[in-house]
Nucleic acid binder design. Structure first.
Length: 310
DNA sequence: GGATGGGGAAATGAGTGTAC
DNA sequence: GTACACTCATTTCCCCATCC
């Protein structure tokens, strides 16, 4: 009975920021003294409450309040475990939590038999994510900039050194163990893709509420870039397998009856170098039919590599 | 024996009055 | 007008009695 009341009380206070013992007593038809005892029990269980005495006093819930208890089925619990497992491969996440600690907390609260099942499954199931060492200490700032529509100047490390860019990030996403953030470049007047771990410094330049592409639309690539070029690539069976794993190419693959594929899309002229680097990874499993500029770029890069080994 | 309630003490802060 | 002291309302906290 007491446990049931404690759960009800936890749900009640999680929905509030501030309340008095008298309010709770009236709500639950209990004495004020009993409410105080229950609240003390919840505090001891880790619910972040504190009491303020005096006039206008009462109980307050701290910002890092806990979520109400959630109930997962066994299969949901296993799925959550593997999701946490994936996140631990990222050295940085945009939340102030210790991912390993969260994973341990979740794991230790699973029933013993489910833990045993997980121990067996772990040897046979892996969601492959590369282990990366690149930390992105400004990741949270980039996320907040995107959410609050902030124009910022970033000091960004590229192959030509550290340079300043005035941009408006539109969001962040994780891929292959790294964090990326597309951002509107005021100089180039288009969205460019940056890596979060290469940002050395970020300064706020104020808010900019002018409408820009959303992260979802940008990822879906359902926009026509400026100075667009038609892209046509023929890929082998192995090429289909490799290209499917790439977010820039994957959505545009049409698979033929024999297992080979065709990629038809559009790219910006400024994206030629970026696209060529992706296609180099596909090697002889992909042949660019058009644009000819991309063919020339690939030929040049391939020649440079050949020259290195001759 | 654990859960609950009652009464009073202690703490706190807003409001008010008074001296300068 | 300002600083200080006091009052009062409101809340938590502690101890003890009662109930199931």
């Amino acid at each position: 009975m007491k446990t049931k009341k404690l759960f009800e009380l936890m749900f009640y206070i999680n929905a509030k920021r501030y309340f008095t013992a008298r309010e709770v007593a009236e709500e639950f038809d209990m004495s004020v003294r009993t409410v105080q005892r229950y609240l003390l029990d919840l505090q001891e269980l880790g619910v972040p409450l504190y009491a303020e005495k005096g006039k206008y006093g009462g109980y307050r819930v701290l910002n890092n309040r806990v979520l109400p208890p959630l109930f997962f089925s066994e299969e949901e619990g296993k799925m959550m475990y593997f999701l946490l497992e994936m996140i631990t491969h990222y050295p940085t996440i945009p939340f102030q939590v210790d991912t390993q600690r969260v994973k341990t907390k979740f794991y230790t609260h699973l029933p013993a038999d489910v833990r045993n099942q997980l121990e067996q499954i772990k040897d046979f199931v892996v969601f492959l994510t590369p282990n990366r060492s690149e930390e992105a200490p400004l990741l949270k700032d980039l996320l907040l900039s995107a959410m609050k529509h902030k124009k910022v100047v970033i000091q960004y490390e590229s192959k030509t050194g550290i340079k300043g860019h005035i941009v408006k990030p539109i969001g962040i996403y994780a891929h292959e163990g790294l964090w990326y953030f597309p951002a509107y470049s005021y100089k180039k007047e288009k969205i460019l893709l940056f890596r979060a771990d290469r940002v050395k410094k970020i300064e706020n330049l104020g808010e900019d509420f002018t409408e820009s592409l959303t992260l979802k639309k940008w990822l879906a690539q359902d926009y026509v870039p400026t100075k667009a070029l038609l892209l046509h690539i023929e890929i082998t069976k192995e090429g289909v397998r490799l290209a499917s794993a790439n977010p820039s190419l994957g959505p545009h693959i049409t698979i033929n009856n024999d297992g080979t594929g065709t990629i038809k899309s559009v790219i910006g002229r400024d994206d030629l170098d970026f696209t060529a680097n992706i296609l180099l990874n596909l090697g002889r499993y992909a042949e660019v039919i058009e644009p000819k500029e991309l063919r020339e770029s690939l030929k040049k890069k391939a020649t440079e590599i050949v020259n290195m080994y001759t």
